[in-house]
């Protein structure tokens, strides 16, 4: 039932016997350089893209305004991607994050913008709904043993339906300036505060992934589920927990989304699903190649957004966005596959 989520899975090395020892002990220098290049691939590409757009549109592109808008407005994408990264690390897909995001932003819009309820209460309710979605996903995964891919696919659509229901298919504006200020209006170093929220979430995810025993157990749940189980890791509990974290972060992204646009649209959030997966998989090819990782995801998300923004500045139509994100997802997965194949080649 485990979906292959591109974690470097045990690609049963054919045969099992090999000259492997030599390969590891005396790794040639050039290969180390290759490693380094692999790690830095996306940051480097990022730099190249920025350079190209700067040369093409020196007056518009390299401005505080442009970067402020890129870093600020796309914090939503970063946060939702970091959210789905957690179940991905545990070997599970969560396709409901975009639905959760949309519902969460609509809760803010409907309760605060439309219903006049205190913004903090609306925020709390939105986060609670995120927990609820995660728990519901987890319930079906754990109790019925259903593949999370399917459960969350259904859940995502279900949530979009609920969003339409509670919104009556209209956009709610009038969201409290209190939220809008702390999300997008207030700036630090010229960049809206929401960027820093995204960075804080990223640091949190990075810390848990790389530096805690919890994160390491999560890694084993994704990369060797049976190993984890037999080593006394409570695998199912970890998987449910990962889905709950994804729900909460998706809800947080929805709150930021509402704050950024100042309104809640019942369908806009679904546009985030594909870019989020593109960023997660692209991020998995860099920094620590072959693993879903926090910083790689952050860089990849901004790389993608910068590409799209730059193309828009060049005057290319909006269709390019879909082409760009869709293409990036395929390319990222292809690269991940390639590096995986290379890795297994190395041990022959």
């Amino acid at each position: 039932m485990v979906v292959d989520t591109q974690q470097p899975e045990p690609q049963a090395a054919p045969g099992g016997d090999s000259g492997a020892r030599a390969a590891v002990t005396s790794r040639p220098r050039s290969e180390v350089a290759g490693d380094w290049l692999g790690r830095a691939s996306v940051p480097l590409a990022f730099g190249v893209v920025v350079l190209i757009f700067t040369i093409l549109r020196p007056a518009v592109f390299p401005t505080i305004g442009t970067f402020g808008s890129i870093f600020g407005s796309q914090a939503v994408l970063v946060v939702v991607t970091l959210g789905l990264l957690v179940p991905l690390r545990a070997g599970d897909y969560d396709l409901s994050v975009a639905g959760t995001l949309t519902l969460s932003s609509m809760i803010i819009g409907r309760l605060n913008g439309g219903g006049g309820i205190e913004i903090w209460i609306a925020v709390a309710i939105a986060l609670a709904v995120g927990v609820g979605v995660g728990l519901t996903n987890g319930f079906f995964v754990r109790v019925f043993g259903i593949n999370p891919f399917i459960v969350t696919l259904g859940m995502g659509t279900l949530l979009l339906g609920i969003t339409l229901l509670i919104s009556g298919d209209q956009t709610y504006a009038g969201i409290s300036p209190g939220l809008i200020d702390v999300v997008v209006t207030d700036r630090f170093l010229g960049i809206p505060l929401e960027f820093y929220y995204a960075v804080i979430v990223c640091i949190g995810v990075w810390y848990v992934f790389e530096h805690t025993t919890l994160g390491r157990r999560l890694l084993f749940v994704g990369s060797g589920r049976e190993v984890a189980r037999l080593s006394g890791v409570r695998v199912e509990r970890m998987r449910v927990g990962a889905l709950v974290v994804a729900g909460v972060l998706a809800a947080l992204a929805g709150i930021l989304f509402a704050g950024t646009s100042g309104a809640a649209n019942p369908t806009a959030g679904s546009d985030f699903l594909l870019p989020a997966y593109a960023a997660a998989f692209l991020g998995g090819t860099t920094i620590t190649p072959g693993r879903f990782n926090a910083w790689g995801t952050l860089v990849a998300a901004y790389f993608l957004v910068t590409g799209v923004t730059g193309l828009a500045i060049l005057g290319i139509q909006s269709w390019v966005q879909d082409v760009f994100y869709g293409g990036a997802l395929i390319v990222a997965v292809a690269f991940a596959q390639l590096s995986r194949r290379r890795a297994s080649q190395e041990i022959i």
Binding site: P8, P10, G224, V227
Partner: peptide, 11 residues
């Protein structure tokens, strides 16, 4: 089953 249960070979 070393490869599946004993250890995560990709780590």
């Amino acid at each position: 089953d070393r490869q599946r249960q004993g250890a995560a070979v990709s780590l």
